[in-house]
Amino acid sequence: MSTSNSSGERIITFGEAVREALAEELRRDETVFMIGEDIAEAGTAFKVLTGLVDEFGPERIMDSPISEAGITGIGVGAAMTGMRPVVDIMFGDFITLTMDQMVNQAAKIHYMSGGKFKVPMVLRTTLGATRRSAAQHSQSLHAWFSHVPGLKVVVPSTPYDAKGLMKAAIRDDNPVAFFEDKMMYQTKGHVPEEEYVIPLGVADIKREGTDITLVATSSMVYVALDAAEMLDEIGISAEVVDPRTTFPLDKQTIIESAKKTSRAIVIDEGYERYGVTAEIASVIADGAFYYLDAPVKRMGAMDVPIPFSPVLEDLTVPTPQSVTDMAKMLTGVV
């Protein structure tokens, strides 16, 4: 259900934006189809795909058995032979079950075949903690796919980005993993009626600032924006840069921002160790070295399995307060 804001722009939720992108691509290209657990009548566990089966039928919105490895493999084979599958993996934690198909098959087929085969497939899944879902339903494992040459990885933060990036992901001729924060499905934002596509690999400055750069992905963009508000109150101007894709990575926009502000924190909900934050921090350290007034800081999920108890789980992810505290330390305002 769309509403309008005061300037008359159409406002929809993140979940609706994803659904709209999928519906438009299903309409535009008959080689696109979806396969996943409880995606048809149930419209996924998060009800994001509600209604798609009514329009496109069960041949194109296919309910599958609980067989993550199998449906991913089927996606790879179908993609190699002329289809554009979107494989739905209910929780990002279950990508562990798809690993051989994604890492040893999908990612390498174009290269191994000397460019003869391609795998135009999307694996859409979720990330994000604080839903009280415990250790096997709360992880943000997008760094795993980001590590592998041959795969692209999308981590959208707004309804607008989710829609435009999903359309680009489906049209891309490479295997693309698309991670949606499950806490964000009800987040609202402006999404125009008209068709648009956002190219993969272009960062977006979500807020301009001059004193410190907060590079944030997916759910952490909102944490960074809230922190920027808090910092604003004490006279620190924070710039929030959203890479939107972890690969390809828009290094230039990130480096330019860090050069301008001379300080940077990288915030991502994946495990901090060997994670997305490490990669981006090294890009900044490398590209903006002579401009930096402070070491680049990283804030990720605590390096622990996600605990169930709310009092523990809330400690494991960066918060507006913890980001603000870090920014104050870096800018010398204690």
């Binding site: 009280r132 415990a134 250790a135 096997q136 339903h137 399995p305 605990p307 169930f308 108890s309 709310p310 009092v311 523990l312």
Partner: peptide, 16 residues
């Protein structure tokens, strides 16, 4: 309920 006296000290929850 995620309490310390739980079988898994509140770290596992219903499914663990």
């Amino acid at each position: 309920l995620g309490k310390a006296d739980g079988y898994c000290r509140g770290k596992g929850g219903s499914m663990h």
